[in-house]
């Protein structure tokens, strides 16, 4: 199959050391080197980053949006996993 459009890459940027890489957008590029170069030009023109990851978009596997209930609802009835579930006496409530 003739592939004419450059593939899509998702761009993740660490804004400074100590923070996670965060998804910020995407670029089209023929290879990883040019994807990094484009990501730098498009997403870090104002000191937004100290490190960039690019990943071919078709290499990312995502959960199915239609499967949200079975994926995430089981957490809804487990409120005992949160510290606020436990009511302690006032003297020790800030532990």
């Amino acid at each position: 199959m003739e592939r004419k459009e450059w593939p899509l890459w998702e761009v993740f940027i660490r804004s400074r050391n100590g923070l996670d890489h965060k998804h910020c957008g995407s670029v089209h590029a023929p290879d990883a080197g040019m994807a990094l170069q484009s990501a730098r030009d498009v997403y870090t023109r104002r000191q937004e980053g100290v490190s960039i990851w690019v990943v071919r978009a078709d290499h990312i596997h995502a959960s199915d949006p239609d499967a949200k209930p079975e994926m995430f609802d089981p957490a809804d009835d487990k409120i005992y996993r949160h510290p606020t579930f436990y009511k302690l006496p006032d003297e020790v409530d800030h532990m």
Binding site: E10, D58, H59, I60, A62, D66
Partner: peptide, 22 residues
């Protein structure tokens, strides 16, 4: 932007770029 071509489970590769269910 934002992972438009990502591979959803149980999808044929040619379907991957089709976008939201219409």
């Amino acid at each position: 932007m934002y992972t438009q071509a990502i591979d959803l489970p149980n999808q044929q590769p040619e379907d991957a770029k089709r976008g939201p269910t219409a």
